[in-house]
Every structure is written in C-alpha cells, then in structure tokens.
Simulated scan of single mutants.
Amino acid sequence: MSSIPWDDLAEEDGYVKPDYEGGALDEQELFWRDHQEWLQDRGYMLRPRYRPDWVPSWKDKPDVYWLLCEDGQRRTWRSNMDATRISDGVRVLMKCVIKSEHPYEVEIATFLSSEPLAANPQNHCIPIYDVLEVLDDPDKTILVMPLTRGFNRPRFQTVGEAIDFFSQFFEGLQFMHKHHVAHRDCGRMNIMMEGTMYPNGWHPTQDSMKPDFTFYRKNEIYSRTERPPKYYLIDFGISRRYDPAQGPPLEDPINGGDKTVPEHQGRKGIIPCNPFFTDIYYAGNMIRTEFLEVMFLSNSSFQKKNEFNFIADLVRDMVQDDPTQRPTMDQVVVRFETIRKKLSNIKLRSRISPRDESIVMAFFRTLPHIFRSIKYPLQRYPAVPSR
C-alpha cells in the first residue's frame, strides 16, 4: 500500500487518491506529474506513468504484479526524473534543484558546461543541455543533462579498461581544480558514464533492462574495450568555486557520501579545511574501496589486490590523514601517467577478478577472456580503450 497521506491532501491542489493498491505515485513523483504538460511544452516527454491521463497497466489485472510492469517503475532517483527530448528522441535526465538548499549548484553546473570549457576534452563534468525555471515555484530550477549510468555498471573486464577510467577521473578532477572549483563529494555515487556500450539504451530505473523493460542478452551489450565510454563527474550541490586571488580556501567540513574523511572526524568544534585536499582524499578512497581490497596492516600500508598493486602507493599518498601531505591533482596526474607508461600490454589486457569470485566462476570467466584477448588485438582494439 502507498504510504502517502492522500486524505490529508487538498482536492483543490490537484491531488487525487488512487483507487488501486501498490505502485501509487509518491509525493515527489506528484511534482513531475503536475508539471508534465509544461515540460512537454518545453520539449521534454515524461514516461506514461507521469502523464495526467495515466491508467496503470496492471489495473483490474489481479494476476499482474505492478512492480514487474514498466509503468510501475518509480522516478530515477530522489529529485531526478528521466525524460525524452521530443525534438530528436535523446533520453535525458532532469534534476530539480532547490536553490535555498543548494544555492550554488546551478551556477557551478552551468559554468562548467559553458564554452569554452565545454569544448575542452579534459572536461569530464556532466553537460547541461537546458535550464528550466519552474514558474510556479521560484525556489526550484530544473537542470537537463544526459541520461548516464553508474561508472562500474557493468563491471570492468580488463586492467586497461580501469586505466582508462582512472585517467578520465583524474583528468576531470584536475580540470575542475584548474578552474578553481572543488567538488567536495567526488565519491563513487557521483561518477557516471555515458551508455555507449548499450546501443539500444536502458531503462532509467533498471539499468540491466531495455527501455521497454525487457532483459538484455549478453550479445547485445558491448565491452568498454569495444565501445569506450566517457566518464562524468556529477552533482555539484555542495561544490564551491573560489577566487584564487584570495588565497587557499578554508571551508567548514561538510559531509558528502563518503563519511571517512580524516579531517572531518572527531573534531571538537568546527575546524575549517581546504576542500581541494578533501577532493584528493575522496578520489583516492574511491579507488581504494572500489579497486583495492583493503586490509590495514599498519598506519601507512594496506594489503592490495594483485591487479592494482601498481597504483597502491599513489592511492596511499592520496588518503593520508594529514591533508597537507596529500599530492595535488596536478601531481596525481603526473605520477599516474608515469605509472601507466610502465604497464605492459599483457598487464593491460589481463582480466580483473572480482574480490568474491569463486574458483568455479573464475574458470568460466577466464575462458571467454582468453578468446577476447585474442580477438581484440586482431580487431585493432587498443589495450587501453580510446575514443
């Protein structure tokens, strides 16, 4: 049953209590339904679920479970909503920014997406296609951007694919810092990628399925080596842009998705810190948690996965407790390029084994990997994907 207090919502506000159980629009979804016609006039079409004339496909069908229906899938994520650009059929993501809560987000997102910055290949900030001011609520602005998917979905197959990701991620954060913008929340949840591997797209709420909510077959999905994606930094809700003439910035700590930042821990009172140093920690800790198996052996070292021990020393420096001892992003990029040049072609084409992989699964995954390792060089795919 829906938990929405329908009886408490005034009819004059346009809310109607549904006469079906399960799959009802929640309170945040009502915003999108109520603005569907306005968004359509602005050139964006929402899914049938959010149109005023929507009738659930499972209504009067007791044998149909609503959660298995395409129109039973709720909004993409919190304040976000997917849509289709009517003019060309491009699928987009809309983010409703509440300006009183995040007063700098629209400014920073549009700045990073403006020319000449947008044309710079080092820019890995999510492009902003459109900015829509909500006429009936001046505190809300809708940012329209590409529909993307998590950077690690599907999983990486080879070390070379991970190298391409590291390069783009470091390059993107370096680009932001060069333009005096600290992200302040550049953890795993705010790194996305374009969907070049999925030529038929995917459903915005279930990214393993097609837009029509049918399952993909493996032969319908390309690898990162075959169709290299571009990776993007997203969500500038707590980001800040600084004036370099005022010297190194100091900000009160603010927690992002990663709660392990050393300078944010165990403080009596609030001690301002440099947010650029914190970005370095976020970046290093993301790689540590996503690509290295971490088991602290002492205060300065940890056990590493075999596939990525080449980057462990750099990561260790990036996550030092003392922020001032961490390398800058310029130094990270230089050190990483030096590391990258030392990796052999065999290493780059080697398979990444998931940390929880069983012996049986390793056997069945190694056989197709051997086939790909022969096929990709013959097809002239480089060991490190290149767009």
Rank of each mutant, 00 (worst) to 15 (best):
A10E: 14
A10D: 13
E12Y: 08
L25T: 11
D26P: 10
E27H: 12
E27D: 10
W32Q: 07
Q36L: 01
W38I: 15
Q40K: 14
D41C: 15
L46R: 07
R49N: 05
S57A: 06
D63R: 12
D63W: 09
C69M: 07
C69K: 10
G72E: 00
S79T: 12
D82E: 01
L93D: 05
K95N: 08
C96T: 07
Y104H: 13
V106Q: 00
T110E: 04
N123M: 01
V134M: 02
D137F: 01
V144K: 00
P146Q: 04
T148F: 06
N152E: 07
R153T: 15
D164Q: 11
F166D: 03
Q168W: 05
L173G: 02
F175S: 01
H177K: 08
H180F: 13
R188G: 11
M192Q: 09
G195Q: 03
Y198E: 07
N200G: 12
P204G: 01
P204I: 02
K210H: 11
R217M: 14
N219T: 11
I221W: 05
P228C: 02
Y231H: 09
R240G: 09
R240E: 11
R241Q: 11
Y242Q: 04
D243L: 06
A245M: 10
E251G: 04
D252F: 09
N255Y: 14
D258Y: 01
D258P: 03
T260Y: 13
G266E: 14
R267F: 09
I270K: 13
P275S: 03
P275I: 05
F276T: 06
T278L: 10
G284R: 11
R288H: 11
V294S: 10
V294L: 14
L297F: 02
L297K: 08
Q303G: 14
K304Y: 08
K305I: 15
N306W: 11
A312N: 05
A312F: 04
D317C: 04
D322N: 14
T324A: 10
T324H: 12
R335S: 12
K341T: 11
K342F: 04
L348T: 02
D356K: 12
I359T: 15
V360N: 08
K375Y: 14
Y376L: 08
Y376C: 07
Q379G: 03
R380M: 12
A383P: 07
P385I: 07
S386H: 07
